[in-house]
Design a protein around this nucleic acid. Structure first.
Lengths: 163, 163
DNA sequence: AAGCGTGCCGAACAACGTTCGGGATCTCTC
DNA sequence: GAGAGATCCCGAACGTTGTTCGGCACGCTT
């Protein structure tokens, strides 16, 4: 066997095709998946199981209309932190990701230290979030908001060539 | 019946619970889902079907380890465009989202006009992307890269309170 | 109080998930 | 170059699930 560290068995074409299909529709039956790929259901099942075990497939998630969750305003918030110490970064990240409005937190290189992806009910709630939650924190030196007007995103990523 | 416009029937608690569960694990069986919520499978199936039909549930997607797709470097690229006309914005957005390295494109308010979420094999490929694909375009006035060092993200979003 | 609409349930059958034994192919080893 | 071993895939079979449908109960309307 191979250890717990990064995929010893590399992805072959069948694996790629399975991953592609499951990114497109994670709720299709194993039989449909197998049919689509031209292999036996039992083979397909085993492949999928291995992909999960190897950590290539991390989970399956429903994509939900943000409006149905009362999230009609979306923004990216860039922040600068002081002092920029490891403990400060870690605790800031951990605290932010727990807040319901926060969808993702990125520690980045550049003028600013953090990029925070946020959704809220409306502009008022976004503002309240910034004032009451973010600028309240002592480590926040400055922050800057980028409201999202439009967006486009992919739901399935192809495998990039090795070289 | 209700028209095709935004959800006439509002989400009740059961709908919220279903949505929550399917965000957590989109590939569980309908029976498991029903068991978890304490309702009959037939009821559960009908609810899920309606949520899809109403557009609340948009799809089901597998979450894949980026490294398995040869995407080991992640960045946000902010760009300024000129002239900032509707046609320029639309065509830039459409062109970018087609590129394999681009995961998402956001049209934002602020100093910069676009925020582009990108993943590439490594720093060299990211650089090549910036030079060959992005700055090649005539409408790009300036751009700025924020490499992602760390990140944390949610896979399931709760419904925010109405008020 | 009767009638109607809505939402949920349970039974039933077709379809599916999952296991397992076996066969084909490939790779070492001698 | 023949045999042993490992690997991968398949198909059959059985338990489980998906999906449909008729009916019941509850709440609203008139």
């Amino acid at each position: 066997m191979f250890g717990t560290l990064a995929m010893v068995p590399t992805m072959d074409e069948l694996d790629s095709a399975i991953v592609q299909e499951l990114q497109r529709d994670a709720r299709q039956t194993n039989r449909d998946l197998a049919r689509h790929l031209g292999i036996a259901p039992s083979t397909c099942l085993e492949r999928v199981r291995l992909l999960r075990a190897r950590g290539v497939i991390r989970g399956y998630h429903a994509e939900i209309d943000p409006a149905a969750l009362n999230r009609r305003v979306e923004a990216f918030i860039s922040t600068r932190l002081r002092p920029l110490k490891r403990e400060v970064i870690d605790s800031f990240k951990a605290a932010l990701i727990k807040l319901p409005e926060v969808m993702a937190v990125y520690v980045v290189a550049g003028d600013e230290d953090f990029l925070v992806h946020v959704t809220a009910q409306d502009l008022d709630h976004l503002h309240a979030f910034l004032i009451d939650r973010l600028s309240q924190r002592r480590e926040v030196l400055t922050f800057r908001s980028q409201i999202v007007y439009q967006s486009a995103q992919k739901r399935a990523y192809e495998q990039l060539p090795e070289a």
